[in-house]
Design a binder for these strands. Structure first.
Length: 599
RNA sequence: GGGGACGUAGCUCAAUUGGUUAGAGUACCGGACUGUCGAUCCGGUGGUUGCGGGUUCAAGUCCCGUCGUCCUCGCCA
């Protein structure tokens, strides 16, 4: 062992180590100079330890204090010294190592550091752009390293659980083929096959189904997935899924397996005890009660249906909506009417308009009945009926949207979430998992005037025997299920179609003709001819799971090297231009290159 | 592709209605200091106000464009 190598980490020394000679390695966090007395805090991943340099009283070797005094933030050092118990009045209760300090006798500067562009503090003072540009410094901050540790602990717990349950971890190709539908693919040109491209996987979906045909029985993979779509706080172009598939199973088998996994992994990685069983919500029920297929169950304020009252209302906005096959629903903000000024309600109106609502009707419940825009339509008996339907009392605020059902549900669902945030209706550390089931098999695509799979085209219908999907299309349920928590979709899965004729019928209904089926999915359909077991599975978003568990606003906080909202990497400056020779090798001509641009 | 917020010292921010030499905290540099632990005290360096154009006697401030970060609608089977 080299003389500079550590005997202990910066987080493990306690008064029990008193009088031992130790060597620590780490970064200088702080340097407090008192003339001929000097304190240095040395940091590594495990903690911070105070070093003391004192020639007069503690016998620091001559010259060492002067050397140490010149050191600056983030210099990498090795220090050897004697562990000393601190006097009671000198203990620092804020640190695990606050009971001791190390009297330095040797000091080696392993690497001097430039002054960092921002200070490595627990609370990030730097903006996100700078943090991403110097991600290695940002990651040096304890909360970030902790997030990485927790993420790793979570994944490890998941792997252990799955291994105990006979799942095998199988790697599937990263270079695969482009498939129609779904998200935009990231493409990789093939050098040896001019004009042809690989696609990076949006998910290992087809491969895991092929593993079931292969008889793997239980498959999983911590899989990186790629989707070339616009980003959000909860969406990155590459992200990680716990991808699982099981053979000879029904919905219940998958749900139980995943539930057990979440309970165990949350306990082990985050010390959180999840209540079991998870809530089950029918898709339609979730939409009706929460206006969302991924409801936040940490607070109530459910959507209240007043269609019946609205139909007979003098208020044309309400009755008109019902006449046009629309819907009227409301939210009750209990006891908070005073908090909402006219201006505040205008802001809410603007908010719901982002989701297509043309207006937000409202009324406050006062001593003399309902005030606000709907007041004059709801005096007397009609008013009493409305209050009863809403369960409203004096001091409450009522908010209504009247429109097409899809708009009403979406707008009020989003409004409910916003109010939950604004009014602080949630408890931190409250993890409300739920399964949403019975999704529609097909959803109407208004833009293209046709039906699309609501999950994906391999999802089994509840009644797989149905011969004609064009009849009662909207009422056909699928065997899909989503795992949701606190308003985020964490995972999505289904029992798959394992019968070729059903699969072909679904494709046909979706307008994927025989030739296209063969071209795009021929290998899967062919595989099904050789004996496909009934199977099903799920894919869970690791980034989202960990971010939620740690209370992060964005999944970037739990990804070591995330990308910006415009899908660039500020650290390594990717994507970048490439040499013309590289393009030539790949048989690629670029359409409109920026002339000679180079950052 | 659309909407919004932001961009001023290394960093985080301030700068009245467009008006003198663009300030503060912190970091950094120098000095003092023997019990600090976000040390303290004294002094100092540090600015193409993202970039380009325009309006004006005068622009950090107003207008147009552009670049970047973030949020969001669309998009994300």
């Amino acid at each position: 062992m080299a003389s500079w190598q550590r005997t202990h980490t910066c987080g493990e020394l306690t008064p029990d180590h008193a009088d031992q000679e130790v060597t620590l390695n780490g970064w200088i966090e702080n340097n407090r100079h008192h003339g001929s007395l000097l304190f240095i805090d040395i940091r590594d991943r495990y903690g911070v330890t105070q070093l003391v340099f004192d020639e007069e009283i503690k016998g620091t070797p001559s010259g060492l204090l002067e050397l140490a005094g010149k050191l600056g933030a983030e210099d990498v050092i090795s220090v050897t010294g004697r562990v000393a118990r601190r006097d009671e009045d000198k203990v620092n209760p804020k640190r695990s190592t606050g009971g001791i300090e190390v009297y330095a006798s040797q000091l080696t500067v392993l690497q001097e550091a430039d002054t960092p562009p921002f200070e490595v503090l627990d609370n990030p003072e730097a903006g996100e752009e700078l943090r991403m540009r110097y991600r290695y410094l940002d990651l040096r901050r304890r909360p970030m390293l902790e997030a990485m540790e927790k993420r790793a602990a979570f994944v490890t717990a998941v792997r252990n659980y799955l291994a105990e349950n006979q799942f095998i971890d199988v790697e599937t190709p990263i270079l695969t083929r482009s498939t129609p539908e779904g998200a935009r693919d990231y493409l990789v040109p093939s050098r040896v096959n001019p004009g042809k491209f690989f696609a990076l996987p949006q998910s290992p979906q087809i491969f895991k189904q092929l593993m079931m045909v292969a008889g793997a029985d239980r498959y999983y993979q911590i899989a990186r997935c790629f989707r070339d779509e616009d980003l959000r706080a909860d969406r990155q172009p590459e992200f990680t899924q716990i991808d699982m598939e099981m053979s000879f199973v029904e919905e219940e088998d998958v749900l139980q397996m995943v539930e057990g996994m979440m309970v165990k992994a949350f306990e082990s990685a985050f010390g959180a005890k999840l209540p079991q069983p998870f809530v089950r919500l029918d898709y339609q029920e979730a939409m009706n009660r929460y206006g969302s297929d991924k409801p936040d169950l940490r607070f109530g304020m459910e959507l209240i249906d007043i269609c019946e009252l609205a139909a007979k209302s003098d208020f044309k906005v309400f009755s008109g909506a019902i006449e046009n096959d629309g819907m009227v629903k409301g939210l009750l903000v209990a006891g908070q009417a005073d908090k909402f000024s006219r201006k505040a309600i205008d802001a809410l109106t603007a908010y719901v308009s982002e989701y297509g609502a043309r207006g937000l009707a409202w009324g406050k419940v006062g001593d003399e009945g309902i005030t606000g825009p709907i007041g004059r339509f709801y005096a007397g008996e009609a008013g009493e009926e409305l209050l009863a339907a809403m369960g409203a009392a004096r001091g409450d605020l009522m908010l209504f949207v009247a429109d097409r059902p899809s708009v009403v549900l979406r707008a009020l669902g989003e409004l409910r979430v916003k109010l939950g945030t604004d009014l602080g209706l949630r408890t931190p550390g409250d993890f409300r998992f739920a399964w949403v089931t019975n999704f529609p098999l097909f959803l109407y695509n208004e833009e293209h005037g046709r039906y699309d799979s609501s999950h994906h085209p391999f999802t089994a219908p509840v009644d797989w025997d149905l011969s004609d999907y064009s009849q009662n299309t909207e009422s056909i349920r699928s065997r899909a299920y989503d795992l949701v928590m606190n308003g985020w979709e964490l995972g999505s899965g289904s029992i798959r179609i394992h019968r070729r004729e059903v699969q072909e019928r679904v494709f046909s209904f979706l307008g994927v003709d025989e030739a296209e089926q063969q071209a795009k999915f021929g290998f899967l359909l062919e595989a099904f001819r050789y004996g496909a077991p009934p199977h099903g599975g799920i894919a869970l978003g690791v980034d989202r799971l960990v971010a939620l568990a740690l209370g992060c606003e964005s999944i970037r906080e739990v990804i070591a090297f995330p990308k910006t909202a415009s899908a660039t990497d500020l650290l390594c400056d990717a994507p970048s231009e490439v040499a013309p020779e590289q393009l030539a090798d790949l048989h690629i001509l670029t359409h409109n290159p920026k002339p000679g641009s180079q950052t």
